[in-house]
Simulated assay, not measured.
Amino acid sequence: MHIPDGFLSPSVVLPLWGVSAGISGYALRRVSRELTERETPVIGVVAAGIFAAQMLNFPIAGGTSGHLMGAALATLLFGPWVAILIMTCVLTIQALVFQDGGLIALGANIFNMGIVGALVAYAVDQTLRGVFGDRRWMRPVAAFLAGWTAVVMGALATGLELALSGLVPADVVLPAMGGIHALIGVVEGLITMSAVAFLSAVRRELMIERPVAGRIPLWTAGLALILILTLLAPLASADPDGLERVAEDLGFIQAARPSAFSLLPDYTIPGLPNESLATILAGILGALMVFGLVVILWLGQRSRRGERASNSKT
Score class of each variant (00 low, 15 high):
Leu16Gln: 12
Trp17Pro: 01
Gly18Cys: 11
Ala21Tyr: 10
Ala21Leu: 15
Ser24Glu: 03
Tyr26Thr: 07
Tyr26Met: 13
Arg30Glu: 07
Val31Glu: 04
Ser32Asn: 07
Glu34Pro: 07
Leu35Pro: 04
Thr36Phe: 07
Glu39Asp: 06
Glu39Cys: 08
Val42Gly: 13
Ile43Met: 11
Ile43Pro: 12
Val45Leu: 15
Val45Asn: 06
Val46Cys: 12
Val46Tyr: 12
Val46Asp: 08
Ala47Leu: 05
Ala47Ser: 14
Ala48Phe: 01
Ala48Asp: 02
Gly49Leu: 02
Gly49Asp: 06
Ile50Gln: 03
Phe51Leu: 09
Phe51Ala: 01
Ala52Val: 10
Ala52Thr: 10
Ala52Pro: 14
Ala53Lys: 04
Phe58Tyr: 14
Pro59Asn: 03
Ile60Met: 15
Gly62Thr: 13
Gly62Arg: 11
Ser65Glu: 06
Ser65Trp: 10
Leu68Lys: 08
Gly70Val: 05
Ala72Ile: 01
Leu73Phe: 15
Leu77Phe: 14
Gly79Gln: 09
Trp81Asp: 15
Val82Trp: 11
Val82Leu: 08
Val82Gln: 11
Ile84Val: 15
Ile84Ser: 04
Leu85Trp: 15
Thr88Cys: 12
Cys89Glu: 15
Leu91Glu: 02
Ile93His: 00
Gln94His: 05
Leu96Trp: 00
Leu96Thr: 01
Leu96Pro: 00
Val97Lys: 03
Gly101Pro: 00
Ile104Phe: 06
Ile110Ala: 01
Phe111Met: 08
Asn112Lys: 12
Asn112Gly: 13
Met113His: 04
Val116Met: 12
Val120Ile: 15
Val120Met: 12
Ala121Ile: 03
Val124Phe: 08
Val124Met: 09
Asp125Lys: 12
Gln126Gly: 09
Gln126Ile: 08
